[in-house]
Design a protein around this nucleic acid. Structure first.
Length: 200
DNA sequence: GTATGGATCTTCT
DNA sequence: GAAGATCCATACA
């Protein structure tokens, strides 16, 4: 399957298959371990309101990066999916750092191996705390609004398609609308996810 | 360990 | 002018 067709599929499939792929930008890279799917048919998606100057990227060609600022502080990275004209995207929520950890730590302004509360036995992996959140990973990779609407195939931000990892599904995080949809995908047993798991 | 509030900016009403 | 797909420090139990 051509890489360009990878994103031209139902957003739930792409969200699942992106877990295990590698994102790289700004001299750093990491494996995707957590994603969330968003689709114009449900109100939590920015595309729900239709095409606006802001959301037109979501309706654009699949394989495009949609970057937006959340709470005035954090940039969040999405991969546009489905056919052009359909508003859908996958939010990248967490990475397992694989390259450029020193750059990440520098941009994040903290130790590359800072432990986080709740880390269990098995969770002492190098790099936890650097990319375990949607706002954190963009900061660690140096991604900002300047990367909005750029291609994930040949633009500054690249996603290398890899063999998908086993995932578990659950509810999305931090939203108030359509929060009950099980559209979050986490790599099984990975310590780099943003939260261990939502309660049932 | 859980709870709360502040930082700070783009977009739409 | 208000809301929002967040993170972190701080306060309290």
């Amino acid at each position: 399957m051509p890489v360009s067709d990878f994103y031209a599929r139902p957003v739930l499939e792409v969200a699942r298959d992106l877990v295990g792929c590698e994102v790289s930008h700004g001299g750093a890279a990491g494996i995707i371990v957590e994603t969330e799917a968003y689709h114009e048919s449900e109100p939590a998606c920015h595309a729900f309101v239709g095409v606006t100057p802001r959301t037109r990227v979501l309706f654009g060609p699949p394989g495009t990066a949609y970057v937006y600022r959340s709470y005035g502080i954090h940039a969040l990275l999405n991969a546009v999916c489905e056919e052009e004209g359909v508003g859908a995207a996958v939010l990248i929520r967490a990475l397992e750092p694989t390259a450029g950890l020193a750059r990440m730590a520098e941009r994040r302004g903290r130790s590359p191996n800072a432990p986080k509360p709740g880390d269990g036995p098995g969770a002492g992996a190098f790099g936890t705390g650097l990319c375990d959140g949607p706002g954190k990973l963009t900061q660690a990779l140096g991604i900002g609004m300047g990367e909005n609407a750029t291609s994930l195939l040949d633009g500054p931000v690249r996603i290398a398609v890899r063999e998908p990892l086993p995932v578990v599904t659950g509810r999305r995080i931090g939203i108030t609308k359509a929060a009950e949809l099980p559209w979050r995908f986490c790599a099984v047993g990975n310590p780099h996810v943003s939260r261990p798991w939502p309660r049932p």
